[in-house]
């Protein structure tokens, strides 16, 4: 594990997590959460867990985002917090 890559990606992950729960648009939350999942997949590939990495890339960044976007379009997009 190259520690500069690890540290930089972890910083981005925390930034994405904070942004995903603070943004006031739920579609924005969906996209930021997708970015979060993809960065997480990158982190696992760096750690040598390739099987976990590609499962996260397909399931976390793919299916979860589709679920979230579909649910946002069936409900409201705006939120108060």
């Amino acid at each position: 594990m190259l520690w500069p890559i690890d540290l930089i990606v972890l910083t981005f992950v925390i930034f994405c997590a904070v942004a995903a729960i603070t943004v006031k648009d739920l579609l924005g939350t969906a996209i930021l959460f997708s970015a979060y999942s993809f960065l997480m997949c990158l982190l696992w590939a760096v750690m040598g867990a390739v099987d976990v990495a590609f499962t996260e890339a397909s399931v976390g960044a793919g299916v979860s985002t589709v679920f979230l976007v579909a649910a946002v379009f069936r409900t409201s997009r705006r939120t108060k917090d």
Partner: peptide, 24 residues
């Protein structure tokens, strides 16, 4: 958080943090 979807996103963030800990 007040919105139910934000709560769910928070739940997933919590889960991935624990998974990250175990993989490391």
């Amino acid at each position: 958080k007040n919105n139910l979807m934000k709560k769910l996103v928070g739940m997933n963030i919590f889960q991935t943090a624990i998974i990250l800990f175990y993989v490391s």
